[in-house]
């Protein structure tokens, strides 16, 4: 399976780092701050055919707006529960506290995520568009 697609949601500050990592089979969605992220965004991504989602925010305590990355973590935990409920493995969703000079963390997580997707295949979502 070579056509896995992974969505990386990041904040404005991490956009450059994520884009410079130029990961294959990935799409990047940049928000002003991860405080904006809500459950609907992540679930929409799965519905639109993403195999996995990585949420990349700043290091804890480092958010310019103080609480965006905590908010994202709360949201990700909540969505993971929803995914498990509807029969999608929670492993497909991961949050990462990235610092701009540590792109290697993102690359490592991305490789792990790829393996997870290879192992699990495409998520089985009714009406998902691919």
């Amino acid at each position: 399976m070579n056509d896995c697609s992974i969505l990386i949601i990041c904040c404005e500050k991490m956009k450059e780092t994520v884009e410079r990592a130029s990961l294959e089979n990935s799409a990047v969605l940049a928000l002003p701050c991860l405080g904006r992220i809500d459950e609907a965004v992540i679930l929409r991504a799965f519905r639109k055919g993403a195999d996995a989602v990585i949420v990349a925010g700043c290091v804890e305590g480092n958010c310019k707006y103080n609480s965006g990355n905590y908010q994202a973590r709360r949201c990700v935990n909540e969505v993971r529960d929803i995914l498990e409920e509807i029969g999608i493995s929670g492993e497909r969703l991961e949050i990462l506290n990235l610092s701009p000079n540590q792109a290697v963390d993102l690359v490592n997580l991305f490789e792990n995520m790829k393996e997870v997707v290879l192992r699990l295949g495409h998520p089985d979502i009714l009406g998902a568009e691919r």
């Binding site: 969505l7 969605l29 928000l31 002003p32 701050c33 405080g35 904006r36 992220i37 809500d38 609907a40 965004v41 929409r44 991504a45 639109k48 310019k64 707006y65 609480s67 965006g68 908010q71």
Partner: peptide, 27 residues
């Protein structure tokens, strides 16, 4: 930052560029 846009229970707050519909379209 968009935190209030996210947390508003009545979705009364919108923010140019990252309102609910715009974000959905972006995804």
């Amino acid at each position: 930052c968009g935190l209030c846009v996210n947390l508003c229970p009545a979705s009364a707050i919108s923010f140019k560029g990252v309102s609910r519909i715009e974000l959905r379209n972006a995804v």
